[in-house]
């Protein structure tokens, strides 16, 4: 048993470093994606018709094209445009723009699922839009949106594996390198899968915890 997994035991530290890069990439993408997603959700719910139509087009395109396609083409296009951006940040930009779309839908669902009655009650007490959104609507909407949001973050972590196809280094690329060296694909990729599992399953458990908690107050 130990002999078959020897290659993994020799290289796990390299894989951990890959995982570190994976997490770095994911973290760097999550922040802009969340901010942009929140802004887009506000546009979707409160914006004017032209802004909303533009947003619909953006959402349609982003949700209909594979992330890999976008990553690949940005990777090839970027040098041609003359923008001097390190590939890491190019990837971060693409993934942020991609996941912002999904996050905006999650936030929008959170806002829209609040009963009209909450708006009525707050307005009846004399609250105006900004106050009402800030202390009544957004706190509740965020609580509702938190579990699917965590799920999206886990998807983002898994999606970082795609950058290995365009040649960027993270956990999947690291495991490919080790496999080429050790010719033990089964063990090494299984080890990488285990690392991804630990990260994503933890997030899934946190998401379930949030889901149970959000039901208590409602």
């Amino acid at each position: 048993m130990m002999k078959t997994f020897a290659p993994l035991l020799h290289s796990y530290w390299y894989l951990f470093r890959g995982a570190g890069m994976t997490l770095l990439m994911a973290a760097a993408s999550v922040v802009p994606a969340t901010l942009l997603g929140g802004a887009l959700a506000l546009v979707h719910v409160f914006g004017r018709r032209t802004a909303r139509s533009a947003l619909q087009v953006y959402l349609f395109v982003v949700r209909g094209i594979p992330l890999l396609v976008l990553l690949t083409f940005v990777y090839y296009l970027l040098p041609l445009t003359g923008i001097d951006l390190p590939p890491f940040w190019g990837v971060v930009v693409v993934m942020s723009l991609y996941y912002a779309a999904f996050m905006s839908e999650v936030f929008r669902a959170g806002i829209e699922s609040l009963p009209q009655a909450q708006w009525d009650a707050a307005r009846s007490l004399g609250m105006q839009r900004h106050l009402l959104l800030r202390i009544i609507i957004f706190p509740q909407a965020l609580r509702l949106a938190a579990p699917p949001f965590v799920s999206l973050c886990a998807n983002l972590v898994k999606a970082t594996s795609l950058v290995s196809i365009v040649g960027l280094w993270e956990l999947t690329m690291a495991s490919r390198e080790v496999v080429e060296r050790t010719l033990a694909p089964f063990q090494i990729f299984l080890g990488a899968a285990l690392i991804y599992f630990c990260i994503c399953y933890t997030m899934a458990l946190y998401g379930r915890f949030l889901e149970r908690r959000s039901l208590v107050g409602h």
Binding site: A117, Q118, A122, S124, L125, G126, I135, Q140, G217, H218
Partner: peptide
């Protein structure tokens, strides 16, 4: 909004703010 301050309304479905305590519900406005 200013005029609404003069009028209090109680709804069939109470419409309390579920993320606030009773006290916070009353003092928020």
């Amino acid at each position: 909004a200013a005029a609404r301050e003069m009028i209090g309304i109680v709804f069939q479905s109470y419409n309390l703010f579920p993320h606030m305590t009773v006290l916070q519900n009353i003092v928020a406005a």
